[in-house]
Amino acid sequence: MFVNQFLFLGAILFCIGVYGVVARKNAVLMLMSIEIILNSVNINLLTFALRNGSTDGHVFALYIIAVAAAEVGVGLGLVLLVYRNKKTISIDDLSEMRG
């Protein structure tokens, strides 16, 4: 197995996730794209952990999973709050902070 095959998989997934964040208007779908990005980062970390023969990458991957779980919890709480107040979760309609 080459190092690059895993790194390229991570890069492709990262770019797909970035496209999702740019293209999507629905807040829940944006959060899903962010999850794809975080998973691509984890693939990279574990690839380098195997390449260098260390376990540090595993620890970082586990921490990223925990932070992602916290992020989804707070993010969906925010989405629910926005939906309750505005009856929409379209990012384009949330322009209160525009100067």
């Binding site: 496209y19 740019v22 293209a23 999507r24 208007k25 779908l29 384009d92």
Partner: peptide, 15 residues
Amino acid sequence: DLNNSYKKLGIPVGL
């Protein structure tokens, strides 16, 4: 209505 009006911008960004 799930996508932005400028979603085609995302394709060159990703590529």
